[in-house]
């Protein structure tokens, strides 16, 4: 493997793959700062398209909706997912059925969960809106939080819990004063992951948000806008959305060196 012909080939492969991965998004980011707004002619640097974006009432209300959905579903998912992770890890008997139920939300195709929830809500005659999107997002978010927290719990030193119990602390006190603080980095990492997944999630939101304009989320807004073609405004919006997810996930990754699920 040390021969130069081979290592040159490896460099060519790396260069080609990284170009393939990064050229499309880089072009997009560059065009969002193009004053003229045309994709083929660079007429100078400008942030005016970002300004347009903030004056676009549809985009702003969609962004607000997304923030509401992401924050509320992240809070529930973090709470439930963390408790679930601790519960599963302190159980001695590992049930295959339980593992399947916990793992399922991460692998079930979005479209299947989306139509299942749509059928479910409409059969119960539930009026759909942001609240149904939140209910639905908690499903996959709690699974992801659980998997991040569980990964960290594998290396958790349970003897400190026994020490706490020996010293007379009750289980809830041990939980709040010992387990949760030690696990905090992983819990925050899981929460950040859940937040990004929720901000980016399109299909389930699209099916469970109901018909009204009032409950459109940002990805739904982006989907509607892209169908009508390329505009410099979408480029700017896409750049912001991309930056938010990358920053949140880089933070999550830093906090939780155990890595993201799937890695």
């Amino acid at each position: 493997m040390a021969r130069t012909a081979n290592s040159r080939l490896m460099l060519v492969i790396l260069a080609a793959v990284f170009a393939f991965l990064y050229v499309p998004i880089s072009v997009l980011v560059a065009l969002s700062f193009n004053d003229g707004g045309l994709p083929t002619a660079w007429t100078g640097f400008s942030v005016k398209w970002y300004g347009e974006l903030f004056r676009n009432a549809d985009v702003m209300s969609a962004a607000f909706n997304t923030l509401v959905v992401a924050v509320v579903s992240t809070i529930f998912a973090t709470l439930f997912g963390t408790l679930l992770a601790i519960g599963v890890e302190i159980r001695r008997r590992k049930g295959r059925f339980l593992e399947t139920i916990i793992f399922a939300p991460m692998i079930i195709p979005d479209i299947v969960l989306a139509i299942a929830l749509l059928s479910f809500f409409s059969m119960l005659n539930v009026t759909m809106g942001l609240h149904t999107v939140i209910l639905s997002h908690v499903v996959f978010n709690l699974a992801f939080v659980c998997s991040v927290v569980r990964a960290r719990l594998k290396t958790f030193d349970w003897s400190i819990v026994e020490a706490s119990a020996d010293l007379g602390a009750s289980t809830p006190i041990t939980m709040i004063r010992i387990v949760i603080p030690v696990m905090m980095p992983a819990i925050i990492a899981g929460a950040l992951l859940a937040f990004t997944l929720s901000v980016d999630e399109f299909i389930i939101a699209f099916f469970t948000a109901g018909a009204g304009r009032a409950s459109i989320t940002l990805p739904m807004q982006i989907f509607a806008m892209i169908r009508f073609g390329v505009t410099p405004e979408i480029n700017a919006l896409a750049t912001i959305v991309m930056a938010v997810s990358v920053i949140a996930l880089a933070l999550s990754q830093r906090l939780n060196r155990g890595g993201l699920p799937g890695q």
């Binding site: 045309l38 994709p39 982006i222 892209i226 390329v230 997810s245």
Partner: peptide, 18 residues
């Protein structure tokens, strides 16, 4: 890690007629 729609949109930007 970035948005699926955005990554798909990037190809519309590259491939469309203009």
């Amino acid at each position: 890690w970035s948005n699926y729609l955005v990554r798909t949109y990037a190809w519309i930007v590259l491939l469309n007629r203009e």
